[in-house]
Amino acid sequence: MKNFEHITLGQRVLFGSGKSAEHLSAEVSRVGASRTMVIASEFERSMAETATAGISPALWWDEVVMHVPVEVAERARAAAVEHDIDLLVCVGGGSTTGLAKAVALATGIPIVAVPTTYAGSEATNVWGMTEERTKTTGVDDKVLPVTVIYDAEFTRSLPVELSVSSGLNALAHCIDSLWAPKADPINQALALEGSRALAAGLAGVAADPNDIDAREETLHGAYLAAVAFASAGSGLHHKICHVLGGTFNLPHAQTHATVLPYVLAFNAPAVPDLAHRLAAALGRPAAGNQDAAQAAVEALNTLRRTLGAPSALIDYGFTADGIPEAVERVLRAVPASNPVTPTEENITGLLTAALHGVTPTAALAAPVEAR
């Protein structure tokens, strides 16, 4: 029997390749904004200029830093107040959207988000900031962008390597949503369809980086992933990556892309039905009497090999010396809903495997200690 409460966040979504300037101009008029602050890093500036061609921003802000350090957020907030800003327009990836959210959290100024990656932050009411090597996250409807403008043309700026990392970050939203604290049949359905779209789209992008149809399919999947994640909440995967990013300053997308298969291998044996459905969504359903968990892990491993995905945390500066502190922090944050009981031993094993890029198998957490 089904028994759950599901919340769908209210948000306007405009999707159309090459239509960002048209859509943004219409949204600025619709919300009645007169003093717009555009948040975009130096790298994102040309895309932001394209998107804002039909409006006259009152302020440009380009100090964007990964993991949103509190001091950076405070400077951006002060500038928004000083210039009497009434609308935030963020054009960029997750760090750019995250900074806009930090400003909105303190000021209540609405956001229109124009994503240029597959990060998905634009579709959630989750914020995150880092202070003293600790990343803190929270949920507040003030940070949910009122409108998201998707223009797949902007994702062409992502090289294949970054497209893969960003897309697998989105896939992590899907997979974590299968067993996160507020997982339910609705967000699981969104997550599985998001997984299908991301797997198909990313394979197309890897084969031809200029394939706009593949870019659109990937962006569509990233949105579904974010909607599922916004409803289901943060699971074990995100708790691990927040520790690795906030405490050890590892790069966001690459860290998510690297850790994802190890968390799937850790949890999948305890949720065979979900594992079976995920394997099918990823395009490699369990064959015959194949174990469902192993099928899901192999499906993800195959996709990652096709994409040339990141495979080892050691490549991004993490070392074995950091594992004890990371394990301690993860165990304090892991949600009670996780399908497998986390322990010092098995989380150490997970991080050690991810550190060295050991090929994940569904026996990673064996013996399974299901809740």
Rank of each mutant, 00 (worst) to 15 (best):
H238G: 11
P209Y: 14
A197Q: 11
R277H: 06
L278S: 12
Q290M: 10
A226W: 13
H256R: 05
T218Q: 06
Y262K: 03
A225R: 10
A275Q: 02
S234E: 14
G233V: 10
L202K: 05
L278R: 02
Y223M: 13
T255F: 07
L244Y: 09
P269W: 11
V205Q: 01
L282T: 02
D273W: 11
A270M: 05
R196I: 08
H256L: 09
K239F: 04
D211K: 09
I240Q: 06
A293H: 01
S195Q: 00
L190Q: 04
N210K: 15
A270Y: 02
A225G: 13
S234D: 10
P285I: 01
A293Q: 00
L219I: 12
A225F: 08
A197P: 04
E216C: 04
G235F: 03
D184Y: 02
L192R: 03
S195E: 02
L278H: 05
A222P: 08
T306M: 08
P209V: 14
A279Y: 00
V227A: 01
P209A: 15
A268T: 00
G194W: 00
F266C: 07
L278P: 07
S231I: 11
A203Q: 09
Y223T: 13
D211P: 07
G221Q: 08
R284D: 06
N187K: 08
A189E: 11
A287F: 13
P272A: 06
N187F: 08
A270T: 08
D273P: 11
P285T: 04
P185S: 09
H276L: 10
F266Y: 14
H256Q: 08
R196M: 09
A293L: 00
R284Y: 04
L192C: 11
H237S: 06
N301Y: 06
P185Y: 06
L190C: 07
